[in-house]
Design a protein around this nucleic acid. Structure first.
Length: 594
DNA sequence: GTTAGGG
DNA sequence: CCCTAAC
């Protein structure tokens, strides 16, 4: 693969984190378009990494901001002045704060960068040693496994391509690895390993797992600050870990792409949207080595794992767009979106796991080596953010209940005013919100009883009678008591208030439809159902829909007096026939005719 | 705020 | 009955 047809848009994929030893958070100190690079440092022998702290970031600032912008230019990515750069947009958009920058040394290592790098990697070593003493107490150095991920990847590369001079070094003990340097002959490779080896042979630059597990809270907080560019006062270790992990994870999300650089120029790249959208996971797991390749200066090095496990942000966006265009007229519901995002997130995690198992993971960020990454999400709560397991976020309960009750109360107020009288009813309803917490069983039985009675009585009720229907006064309080208790004894969710439609209601509805027309639900509600405080216009609509179904489901040959075979309520066939008649009539008659 | 339609 | 997009 590695075909190269690219659009300018796709150049951002150059920001493929690709094994950079740093990612670039946009810290508060350094806004938009002025990316600060910071290093992730692998701490001690176990492969754990911590992001650099602010001091270190500052150090980096001078050199790397500069080199980063160099990178942009050499890659053809121009954070156009005057208009906000893509990065800044990204920054604004979400938690995708950290978008890794492809460093220029991928293409064109300059001595400047090299120097600066070796400089501050030394500083890091010191820092690391401190950290080590601080936190690495219990972890044996030989636990250092994951840091070789990238190396393995390069190993693969070796198989497929030309041998890489430094790959063997790299594999032995996970030595310093600057594999983001594409040119093996770059001075960096000589400089850095030396520096690292002198102090800590085992020390490797980022390239693998970040283990936050054993960090003390303080360190976590610092890491947090380094990652997100802001302080945190949270002392919850778990929260911090997750938060950091998330931040880092997201920073590694970059689209899968093909991209070719030749002679320090971006020759082209290609996002085969089919490939991407087809099966992201497949791409992540296996395909990438062949699907995303960097060709630099004649050296062909596959960036596989870099762009591989990665992001679905853009990819899935395209994907879902396509899908939507194809078969959706309606906007996807929130539920749909959430479910989509859920599966998406899952796939990310899964893919990463896959890659872990394939030892080709470069950027998997897991909370600790063995443990699973918990998929969580952060929800704002009372000003602070709370992390919750990322299960379906669909609101199944009805927070709106009170609101609905009020609404209904309101409407019934109006109705009461309009029709005069019924102040008793009104009062009884208004009281109810205070008495929300009641056991559900009582009202239910009550409700059933009353509605049963109603059914019997209402057969002879006329519309005029309905104002004094026992229903009205008797049920209204029940209704609102139910409102507050959607939970049943069993703990399951139960419908808030199920009130069977009485025959009189049905007939009223039918009459209303015949008078005002189907679809004029609010009118019908207002004019015919004024006394039925509980049937909303939506209810009417739903009921009518059901009636229609019932009426058309029933064979026309049925005689009057026969009843629905099964169903909670027996709707006399004459009513069904009437419904049907109305339906047919109204479907023919233009709505405004009436 | 109402209506339509899926769930 | 509930939810929510669309109007």
């Amino acid at each position: 693969m590695g075909t190269v047809v690219g659009t300018v848009e796709d150049r951002r994929e150059m920001f493929d984190v690709s094994a950079q030893t740093r990612i670039t958070p946009f810290s508060s100190t350094n806004q938009i378009g002025n990316p600060v690079a910071y290093k992730l440092v692998r701490v001690a022998g176990d492969g754990r990494l911590v992001p650099a702290t602010d001091e270190e970031i500052l150090e980096v600032n001078e050199t790397d901001v500069h080199s980063a912008s160099d990178a942009c230019q050499s890659l053809g990515y121009l954070p156009t002045e005057g208009s906000p750069s893509r990065l800044s947009q990204l920054e604004e958009t979400s938690e995708v704060i950290n978008l890794g920058l492809l460093r220029s040394d991928n293409v064109e290592p300059s001595t400047d960068q090299v120097n600066s790098q070796s400089e501050y990697s030394e500083e890091f070593l010191q820092k690391v040693e401190q950290d080590e003493r601080l936190v690495m107490v219990s972890t044996p150095p030989d636990a250092n496994i994951q840091c070789c991920n990238e190396n393995n990847m390069f190993d693969e590369d070796q198989v497929h391509h030309e041998p890489l001079p430094f790959s063997s070094d790299v594999q032995n003990g996970c030595d310093v690895n600057q594999s983001n340097t594409v040119e093996p002959s770059s001075p960096k490779e000589t400089a850095l390993p030396a520096a690292a080896a002198s102090q800590k042979p085992d020390f490797a630059l980022v390239r693998g797992e970040i283990c936050l597990d054993n960090l003390p809270i303080k360190a976590l907080q610092e890491t947090f600050r380094a990652t997100f560019g802001r302080e945190t006062t949270v002392k919850d270790k778990t929260w911090l870990k997750r938060r950091i992990t998330m931040g880092l994870t997201k920073s590694f999300d970059v689209p899968t792409t093909n991209l070719t650089i030749k002679d320090n120029k971006l020759v082209g790249n290609q996002v085969k949207s089919n490939d991407v959208s087809d099966d992201v996971r497949a791409t992540n797991v296996k395909e990438a080595p062949s699907s995303s390749a960097y060709h630099v200066n004649g050296h062909s090095k596959e960036a596989s794992a870099h762009s591989l496990g990665v992001n679905h942000y853009w990819a899935t966006e395209d994907f879902s767009c396509e899908e939507r265009a194809a078969k959706r007229v309606r906007k996807p519901t929130r539920r749909y979106i959430e479910e989509l995002s859920k599966t998406d997130d899952k796939s990310v995690v899964i893919s990463k796991d896959h890659r872990l198992s394939e030892k080709s993971e470069v950027r998997s960020v897991s909370v600790s080596s063995g443990k699973r990454v918990t998929v969580t999400r952060v929800v704002p709560l009372g000003g602070s953010e709370v992390e919750v397991p990322y299960v379906s976020h669909v609101r199944r309960s009805r927070p709106r209940e009170n609101f609905m009750a009020l609404m209904e109360c309101h409407t019934s107020c109006l109705e009461a005013k309009a029709s005069g009288g019924e102040s008793n009813l009104l009062n009884s309803e208004v009281v109810s919100p205070g008495s929300v917490v009641k056991s559900a069983s009582g009202p239910i039985q009550n409700e059933l009883a009353t509605s049963h009675n109603n059914t019997n009585e209402e057969n002879i009720l006329t519309e005029a009678d309905q104002d004094i229907e026992p229903d009205s006064s008797g049920n209204s309080s029940d209704e609102y008591n139910n409102t507050g208790t959607p939970m049943m004894q069993g703990g399951g969710l139960r419908r808030k208030h199920h009130r069977a439609w009485t025959l009189s209601e049905v007939t009223t509805l039918v009459e209303g439809v015949s008078k005002y027309g189907a679809g004029k639900w609010s009118e019908i509600k207002k004019l015919s159902f004024s006394s039925h405080s509980h049937r909303t216009s939506v209810d009417l609509k739903d009921k009518w829909r059901n009636l229609l179904r019932a009426s058309f489901a029933q064979s026309p040959s049925n005689n009057v007096g026969s009843f629905k075979k099964h169903g909670s309520m027996h709707i006399p066939v004459e009513i069904l026939l009437q419904v049907r008649e109305l339906a047919e009539k109204q479907s023919l008659v233009p709505p405004n005719h009436r």
